[in-house]
């Protein structure tokens, strides 16, 4: 059974690359463009990993993860935060709510796949 990954990023190009890479590696991918959409798209689906951008319109990654982690079903779902600039403060904030894995853009598709393999 293939594993399912939720990717939340407002940049269409990043989303496309992540999706292509992950699908190529046999993962199922759910895409969302912001936190709110991300939460909506989860909808009880079993998700093995959440990959999310930090800075997004409407609802950012940190707020989204905070909400998702309240749901028993996703309490322990690993999260990779993607960021172009990770301030220590922001990272701490993220870590406090359980978003421990941070990946700094730019990353190559292989790096992303490697990271995903490390957490699934």
């Amino acid at each position: 059974m293939s594993k399912t990954i939720l990717i939340v990023d407002d940049s269409a190009s990043i989303r496309q690359v992540v999706t292509i890479t992950l699908k190529g590696a046999g993962f199922e991918v759910i895409e969302a463009t912001n936190g709110k959409e991300g939460i909506a798209k989860l909808d009880g689906t079993k998700v093995h990993l959440i990959i999310s951008d930090v800075n997004m319109p409407i609802m950012g990654g940190i707020d989204m993860v905070k909400e998702i982690k309240q749901l028993p079903k996703y309490k322990f779902t690993p999260v990779i935060m993607l960021t172009t600039e990770a301030s220590e403060e922001m990272k701490q904030q993220g870590k406090a709510i359980g978003a421990k894995a941070w990946m700094v853009k730019p990353f190559k598709p292989e790096q992303m796949l490697q990271a995903v393999n490390m957490l699934t």
Partner: peptide, 16 residues
């Protein structure tokens, strides 16, 4: 402006 440069770099990196 920093973010713009960073995003360009970031996305470019993804496309090698």
């Amino acid at each position: 402006i920093f973010r713009s440069a960073h995003t360009i770099k970031g996305s470019a990196g993804i496309f090698a």
